[in-house]
């Protein structure tokens, strides 16, 4: 009761001093509505950042678990009787990639294929490229931001670094002979520079390869994809099953 009375008094006094025209009320209402919409848009953008930084990683982590099961990983080894590489479907678990430069325990399951849906689950094997150990250019693409960011530290790769690949057919060791070498802009290329994944890098599709190479690609800059970044190397050892 008391409050109501006070409110009524306030209203009365306002009416006395300044009479808000209905027009001004409409303007205030619209301005308030626009303000709320802008605040909401800001909140949505922030949520999108949360999604790219953290939300996408949850899905990737789950997918990696499924892919590990698919490979039948037992004590870090691929099971004895896996699906042959040439019978894999797009999106299947392909093998394991280990890069000691990224950490002792750094290990990711490679997916067959490089479509968005494949790369959401882990680094992907370019379908047109050969299998590891073969003559040609075994090529992999991976995210550097979001989706578990497997290649987050990509610019830290140095010439001489070892890339270990394990598949159903064996374990293969590659040594990088071209890498960003710690330069955040090192080995930066355009989005159409598919020459890096050619059988003989830079020689076109028809060139007959003689070397057993590996090539890794990721995005540049880290939080965008106006360009790409790559590292490449040559087979130096390993053992077939």
């Amino acid at each position: 009761m008391h409050r109501k009375a006070a409110r009524g008094r306030r209203k009365a006094s306002r009416r006395k001093t300044q009479q808000p025209t209905p027009q001004r009320n409409v303007v205030a209402l619209i301005a308030g509505g626009v303000g709320e919409l802008m605040l909401t848009a800001g909140a949505v953008v922030l949520l999108f950042v949360v999604y790219t930084l953290w939300g996408t990683g949850i899905q990737t982590a789950n997918a990696q678990d499924d892919l590990r099961d698919q490979l039948g990983l037992d004590a870090g080894q691929i099971e004895k009787d896996p699906i042959p590489l040439d019978e894999l479907e797009v999106g299947d678990a392909y093998g394991i990639i280990r890069i000691p430069r990224f950490g002792e325990d750094w290990e990711w399951i490679i997916v067959q294929g490089t479509e968005d849906a494949d790369l959401k689950n882990g680094p992907g094997h370019y379908l047109d490229s050969v299998d590891p150990g073969e003559i040609g250019n075994f090529s992999i693409a991976g995210h550097r931001s979001g989706h578990g960011e497997p290649f987050a530290q990509f610019p830290e790769l140095q010439v001489g670094d070892i890339i270990e690949i394990e598949t159903a057919t064996g374990t293969y060791l590659y040594e990088l002979d071209s890498a960003p070498n710690g330069d955040p802009d090192g080995n930066k290329i355009g989005i159409r520079d598919s020459w890096v994944v050619d059988p003989v890098p830079g020689e076109g599709d028809e060139a007959e390869p003689t070397e057993r190479r590996i090539t890794l690609t990721t995005c540049w800059p880290r939080w965008g994809s106006s360009h790409r970044m790559y590292a490449t190397g040559i087979l130096i050892g390993g053992e077939e099953v």
């Binding site: 999604y51 939300g55 996408t56 490089t114 968005d116 693409a141 931001s145 290329i189 994809s225 790559y230």
Partner: peptide, 19 residues
């Protein structure tokens, strides 16, 4: 998170890593 953001990510091509 389930529908809009995954769509936006694809539509704006902000995380392409292949050549």
């Amino acid at each position: 998170f389930i529908w809009v953001f995954p769509w936006a990510e694809d539509a704006f091509n902000i995380s392409e890593v292949t050549v």
